[in-house]
Amino acid sequence: MESVILQIAARHMRPLLVILSLVVLYRGHNEPGGGFIGGLMLGAAYILYAMAFGVEKTQKSIRISPVALTGIGLLLALVSGLPALMEGHLFMTGEWTTFFSGSSFELKLGTPLLFDLGVYFTVAGMLTLVMFSIMEE
């Protein structure tokens, strides 16, 4: 399946999809989206790439194995529960801080977002893991 068009598309789509997935991830707290949907998009970016260039090359270009990605995702989700403990709250209590608290724009970051990031990585890792295994077969 060495299609040139696909290869070009995949090469250009990948960064786009990655960025888009991050946007979806961040937006998810207020608008439709979230870690799961973002993760699927991230995964899709790499699957597309793998369809164009083959699994092995894709693996090399990511440098991080899907299994590790899954693990990192789980770990992040787990770790997001810990800051609460330092604050003396119960495990997984949401802790928030605000950056650039201007009037029109503010960047609110909190442990639930970190948790969602964990979901994002896990889903992407799972998706690529499964698809890569099947595609290699």
Binding site: H29, E31, P32, G94, K108, G110, D116, V119
Partner: peptide, 14 residues
Amino acid sequence: EAFGRNIVNVILVD
């Protein structure tokens, strides 16, 4: 309390 407008997502992550 959870600083999110997408309630479904807030339920899921918080």
